[in-house]
Design a protein around this nucleic acid. Structure first.
Lengths: 356, 356
DNA sequence: ATTAGCAGTCAAGATTCTTGAGTGCTAAAT
DNA sequence: ATTTAGCACTCAAGAATCTTGACTGCTAAT
């Protein structure tokens, strides 16, 4: 879509030597652990690469030249750039899998809980936040095309009724309706039943196109109810992302890179703004597998210093959602990716069980 | 209840002279505006009290002696203590009323919106946060004794059904039920209807005591459904505070008193912990009118530097909730109190309209 | 009782010093 | 052609010191 993916063939850029890759790998790992710039000495002390610090220095200079590393200032060690992180994640990380005990613990928690969607979301957010020590984001499963499942009209007062609309993806929507004339509960129930019979499993479009005689014949408040229900369904269709559940914010904000109140607030603002977050999550919704978004580049300029590990979940076409984490760019990607992947699989399984 | 309210008659503590009260009032107002300790000079410059700074100094010393003021350090101006704030709010603030334009704006926003409980909560939170420039807290209206209104069982799959339970206070609760044998939608609908007829407007207790023959005769999955519904209602009864809606966190965290990442995180943690917040809000639920809670004293030791302005709303016995704000202790109390009061009245009106 | 005046205090900001981790470069060694 | 040891150089961060100015409390005069 964007031409970012395919820049004018910079393929020629010399590949890294095995030693350079190893140095890059060690450096990033160390930096992720310690949060301090890593120098040639430390690197020599850590690792199995049997060369002197001077050699490492030379290699570091090359890696910096190529844009994988940066120096905060002349007399400091090196720090990975976004390009460095990306290379690390894509080429150096290898296949990671969540440790078995963690998996077991997660599974266990999921089996404990009562079958309640909201509680699920919360649990998922909590589990993700806990296992990755980052902030988690989870959206509820959601069908791209709302299909009617059930409507219920409940009289609250003579001219006021509560409309409860259940869709195929299991989401429940409610709204109060005011009528000009008093309506009895019997009339409401009757209309509910009529709708339940006529609209079952239909999308907004299908309902509008079908122009069923019984529907066309509706008048007054009955027509009004139908209009409202359709309007609600349209609204649901429009929002590709439903409510976002979060957890573990503090995990991220405690990281040393945010010891400055300024930056801390910046991240916080980011998470409070639904807009930005929604648009990011929406992109992942149609992706395959785990996606990693690094802040600070291209379209994500304003979310510097953080990155997101996201994955879609659910059953394509039935009910899908996005879940993942947001953490400092200096993040244990291995664990993060495997955790997100695992939880996404689990959730997909549950969704399949229910809606499959 | 606690004996805090009635300490061993310290009434004898000399009352403040009018000048002292005026000085205290001016100082607190100035401090609220500027967030810097206020000295005798500034105080002289501001106010209509026609005395020299030296005199003011003497009075300040007295006020400090009595515990209304404190000095961050010897060569700084004075800052109000909690006792000072309390005196200010209770005795010096006078009757405050929200400016008419603000009232009109708020009313306007409330009339714009569609009749949807969740949206109401969000709007209320947003309005409060906006008019007070603090963080807002709003709980959904909630009856202290859950009364059954409507149940709906919807088949999801042969052995899985969705139970939707609507209570008299308008709250909707959902849960999935797994059955051992496959159940048809007809059977589910039939049971729903049966329950709707039998349980209407009853509390858990009433249902359990009535021991209606039709209910006692239920067996297998039907009994299971009833058990689940009652369990859900019990759970609702147990939680006196439903979900808490928040908004405007950033408003508070931007205040100069939180320019330190340490304190900032402390407040944030406070708001993330549901427990503490819930217990505080629950206390207000049964209070009359606006309550002000100052952090740092007695039971609120760990919430230093912030205070809350809270008010219950709703119809006693039918559906009640709590709304209010949390801000720095250095808060424009006049505006805050009047805004909370006004919004609480508005909400009560709406609730009355619906459930009255 | 109030006020002017003065000596004293102390946080906060500016300035300087010190330290040490880390670099780049060069020349010798492999 | 690499690699390595060694050395001079750099610079952020922390400690130490100085300066400033907004306060106070006290005393003596009004």
């Amino acid at each position: 879509m964007t031409d970012e993916q395919r820049e004018p063939e910079r393929q020629e850029e010399e590949a890294l030597t095995p030693r350079q890759r190893e140095i890059l790998r060690l450096l990033i790992q160390e930096y992720i652990d310690t949060a301090t710039p890593v120098g040639s000495h430390t690197l020599r002390a850590i690792g199995g690469l049997g060369v002197s610090s001077a050699t490492i220095r030379n290699e570091l200079a090359v890696l910096e030249e190529m844009g994988y590393l940066a120096q905060p200032h002349t007399s400091a060690g090196r720090v990975p750039t976004v390009k460095g992180y990306r290379y690390f994640v894509e080429r150096l990380l290898g296949d990671v899998d969540l440790p078995l005990p963690s998996k077991r613990m997660i599974r266990h928690q999921f089996h404990q809980i009562r079958l309640n969607l909201d509680q699920w979301m919360e649990l998922t957010a909590a589990v993700l936040a806990h296992t990755t020590r980052a902030a988690s984001l989870v959206t509820a499963p959601h069908a791209s095309n709302a299909r009617f499942r059930h409507i219920q009209l409940i009289s609250i007062r003579d001219t006021l009724c509560l409309m409860i609309l259940v869709l195929q993806d299991g989401s429940i929507h409610q709204e109060m309706l005011v009528t000009t004339e008093p309506i009895s509960q019997e009339a409401l129930s009757q209309l509910s039943n009529q709708f339940n019979a006529l609209l079952y499993n239909k999308t907004v479009q299908e309902i509008e196109e079908s122009s069923h005689p019984e529907l066309a014949a509706l008048e007054g408040w009955r027509a009004e109810v139908l209009r409202h229900a359709l309007y609600l369904m349209e609204q649901v269709d429009r929002r590709s992302i439903s409510e976002i559940h979060r957890d573990g914010l503090i995990n991220v904000l405690r990281q040393p890179e945010f010891d400055d109140a300024e930056r801390l607030l910046h991240v916080l603002e980011l998470l409070e703004q639904r807009h930005l977050l929604e648009s990011i999550l929406a992109k992942t919704l149609n992706a395959n597998g785990v996606q990693i978004i690094f802040g600070g580049e291209g379209p994500y300029e304003d979310i510097s210093d953080v990155s997101l590990v996201l994955s879609p979940y659910g059953v394509r076409g039935k009910a899908t959602g996005v879940l993942g984490i947001l953490g400092p760019m200096r993040m244990p990607y291995g664990r993060a990716i495997s955790a997100v992947q695992y939880v996404a699989e689990l959730m997909s399984g549950l969704i399949r069980e229910i809606y499959g």
